[in-house]
Structures are given as structure tokens and as C-alpha cells.
Amino acid sequence: MYRESMSMRKLFAKGCLVLAVCVCFTGVLLLLSAREPFRSVIAAVTGSEAYASKLDASGEVIAYIEKAQTKDESSKLIVGDSVCNSLFGELQELNPDYKILCCNKGITMAGQYILTKEYLDCHENVTDVYLIVISNSLITGFDTEFGYQYAVIPFVRTGTIGDLEERTVREMKSLYFAPFLKEAVIEYVEASPLIKKLYLNAEKELRPTVLQLSFPDVTVEYIQKMYELCKERNVKMHFMAPPLAETDERRKVEAVLREEYEKSPLYELFPNYYDSYVYYPAELFPDGIHPNVDRKYKNEMIRAMEEKMDQVWDLRLE
């Protein structure tokens, strides 16, 4: 019995030693994975190259925030999601009096608020702010799919995370782990494809994103904040939806969400958001969400939105 426990101890000690060596190895590997020339070797061997080349999500959002902060003669702002972008994205050059910053749903409504706030802080004589999103974007809160790259990294890197409420930052910290909101850590994550891959996948495994047919706090809170901000600065805020695909599935989802919406405080501020919905034949939307039509048809869609909302934009469409 004594001998048995002695050899058990020996095994345990050696096991710990091997474990410690493995941990050190992993640590060194992770550190080196952010530095050339090791970076590309390690990325190749660990199959994480795609995380370096294909994923520049944060850079994309940072560019939008910087555009919002760039002062020009525009007096109207359009913010929205990728559906909005497919309609309005190309119109920027024709419309210098508009600032068109349609990003995607990944930045959440907190991101839309940041864009608005940064824009208003840098521009005078602003008259209108348009928030144009479909309900898919409204039900997207901070998640482990897009949230870290499309929201956390750009917000921290541009310093605009300071625009958000304390409560929101706490929520982000608990979801993404506090250290990963630190600039130094983010730099490592961005520099090392391996760390990015491990972190994003670990997050996804630990907290899988569950799609829910309701509006997260961040949506309700930050649309309200946008409203208040605009009111304070004497700017008129409009909230509407881009075109939608006519499918049974879509109709069902919207029926549920409309009910949700009417119960939320947003209904008081923007009672006609759901009246702005215009449905088009499903075959125009290859992925069910984004319209794939020519410019002329897109312009017709914009006109239809105007009609629905009973207002006339002075947007130049061609």
C-alpha cells in the first residue's frame, strides 16, 4: 500500500511536470504567433491563416466610425445595416449633403448610436438622422458570432466605447471576458491569427448564440438614446425598414416581432416603424435578406419607402 501511494505520487509529480511544460509551450507558441516570421508558419500549421486574411471585420467598422468623425458639409445622416447598405451605399458620391454610413447588423444598435453620436459631435446644422434596419438587426445584440470583431474591437480601438453606458460595457466584459476588452490584448488578438481563431471558437463553444425572436436590451436602450440625443440637438430622427422578401417564414417572424415591438417602449417613440414595411417578391432576394436587383429597381424601392413613410427625400438617385 505504501509503495503504491509512493509511485502514485511520482506519477502525479511527473504528470504535473509534463503538463507545466505543455502549458509553457502553448504560452510561447501563442506569444510567437503574433510576430513574424513565426506568425505565418504557426498560422499555416494550425490552420488559422483564414483568420488573418479573410477577417478584417474590425477594420471595416473602424473605417465607418472614422468617416462619421470626419467633418464635411453634410447635414443628414443615414445609418443602417447591410440591407440598407445595398440600397444606399452607392449613393454617397451623388449626395454630398448626406452622410451615408450603412454598416451591418454586427455592430448592434449600440454601434449605430456611436456612429450617430460621433457624427453629431463633429457636425453642425444637422437636420435629420435616418436609422434604416430590418428586424434581423434589431434582434441582434452582443453575440459570440460577430460581436467581438464588429463591435468590441472597433469600439475599443477608436475609443468610442466611452460613448456607451457603464452597464453596456459591463455586459460586454462579462460576455467577452474583461481582459479581451483591453487594448493590449486586442492588439495581440488582431496580430495573431492563431489567438483569434482559438478565442473566437472558444467563445462560440462556451456561449453559443441562440437566435431569439425578441429585442435585446441593447436594441431598446440605444434606439431610445439615439432618439433622446437627436431631440437634445434639435435633429429629427426617422426610423424605418428597408425592403423585405415576401415569404411565409418572413411574415410569421414579423408578426411575432411586431407584437413584441408594440409592447416595447420604442413603440411610443416610433409608432409607425412596422408600417414602413414593403414586401417584394422573394425571388429578388437570393439569400432571403439582401435584394439583388439593378440600380433602377433599387431606386424604385427607395421611392416606395418614401411613399410609405409619407415624406420626400432630396436624395439624388442618378
Binding site: V18, V21, C22, F25, T26, L29, V45, T46, G47, S48, A50, Y51, K54, L55, A57, S82, N85, S86, N104, K105, G106, E145, F146, Q149, Y150, L194, K197, L198, L200, N201, A202, K204, E205, D287, H290, N292
Partner: peptide, 27 residues
């Protein structure tokens, strides 16, 4: 250590192979 290192690298490789999951598809 060589064996452990190979396994660790291999495991990291196998962990989360699908990158498209994290890319928001733009149009």
C-alpha cells in the same frame, strides 16, 4: 515533448475549422 507539441498543434488546428462562421457576408 515532441509528441505533446504535435498533438497541441494538431488540436489547435482541429478546433473550429470553419472560418466562414465569423464573417458577416456583405453584398
Amino acid at each position: 515533448l515532441l509528441l505533446c507539441a504535435l498533438v497541441l498543434l494538431g488540436m489547435m488546428r482541429g478546433f473550429g475549422a470553419d472560418v466562414s462562421y465569423f464573417i458577416y457576408n456583405k453584398f
